[in-house]
């Protein structure tokens, strides 16, 4: 009797333990993570050393052959460079744009919430196939932008036919999806104590001075967070390139994700694609590391030295 009661008591304390409850709540995520992320990650590591193909479904161990071939592949280098260009141009543009909008929306006005929701919409729909198709139409040879140019007497631009221009509509599409970083910036802006601004005002600081001397430094941890997240997201861009340009012309919009997809599903080289993914992981880790290491130089922390 007593034993059962103790057992019962242990059972209760186990169930009511915060950790247990937490784990149960996290279960759906843990399940999803293991089956849709962890297992595929482990498999892709193994496959990157094999000649696995969806067609033959045989995976023979071939050591580092995939990696050696990748470094002989001119399309690989081109797509890596183009992806870097895409990241380097689109991320700063997107961050400055979202910061600007967030800044404008800190004003006290009843419509602020409405505006924030409105500006967030592109982020919700922006990654979709539908918007990519709209974008393709807008920049087409006879699309909206060229019609406008034509009507005001300017020469039309062959966006997707010119290998130097084709990537910019894609960058613009990414900048347009500034909503999530805008929300984070807006939250960050609210956290900055108004006393700083008041003090600066009394000392005679102008608007731009208080922006660069107060807002930016106080916001720098948030900027760092957004920078890391957006850089990672930009490296993984895929939909736009697949739908809008298909990688052309002359592979000038062959974003890395698209090339991995082509190798895996179009050319039946799953092993090669897995190896490419691991190379991307290394590149992304390096870039993220650089951002973190350099953060000492530009991220301001109140508790810091």
């Amino acid at each position: 009797m007593k034993g059962a009661a103790i057992k019962n008591g242990r059972m209760r304390s186990l169930i009511y333990n915060d950790n247990t409850v937490g784990h149960i709540f996290a279960l759906p995520f843990i399940f999803g993570f293991i089956s849709f992320s962890l297992i595929p990650i482990v498999f892709s590591f193994y496959y990157s050393f094999t000649d696995y193909s969806l067609g033959t479904k045989t995976a023979e161990w071939i050591g580092f052959v995939n990696f050696v071939n990748i470094f002989k592949d001119e399309v690989f280098f081109k797509s890596l460079l183009k992806t870097l260009q895409y990241v380097v141009v689109s991320v700063p543009l997107k961050l400055s744009f979202s910061l600007m909008i967030a800044f404008l929306l800190t004003r006290k006005s009843k419509l602020v919430t409405l505006y924030r929701s409105l500006y967030y919409i592109p982020s919700l729909v922006g990654g979709s196939v539908a918007v990519a198709l709209v974008w393709k139409q807008l920049f087409a040879r006879r699309g909206l932008f060229n019609t406008v140019l034509d009507n005001i007497g300017l020469p039309t631009i062959n966006w997707f036919g010119d290998q130097n221009l084709a990537i910019y509509p894609l960058i613009l599409l990414s900048v347009w999806q500034f909503g999530s970083s805008m929300i984070i910036f807006a939250a960050g802006l609210k956290e900055i104590p108004t006393t700083y601004y008041e003090a600066a005002k009394i000392d005679g600081a102008k608007g731009y001075q208080s922006f660069f001397r107060i807002t930016l430094p106080c916001l720098s941890p948030i900027i760092q967070y957004n920078l890391v997240m957006q850089t990672i997201a930009a490296f993984m861009s895929f939909t736009q390139a697949l739908i809008i340009t298909g990688g052309g012309p002359n592979n000038s919009t062959m974003l890395y994700g698209l090339y991995v997809y082509n190798q895996a599903f179009k050319y039946n080289n799953m092993g090669y694609a897995s190896a490419m993914s691991w190379i991307m992981l290394i590149v992304m880790s390096l870039v993220t590391m650089v951002i973190f290491k350099s953060s000492k130089l530009w991220v301001f922390s109140e508790s810091g030295d």
């Binding site: 393709k136 040879r141 997707f160 036919g161 340009t245 052309g248 012309p249 002359n250």
Partner: peptide, 8 residues
Amino acid sequence: PDAGASTE
């Protein structure tokens, strides 16, 4: 058609 036009 060039590459861009072909995708249309």
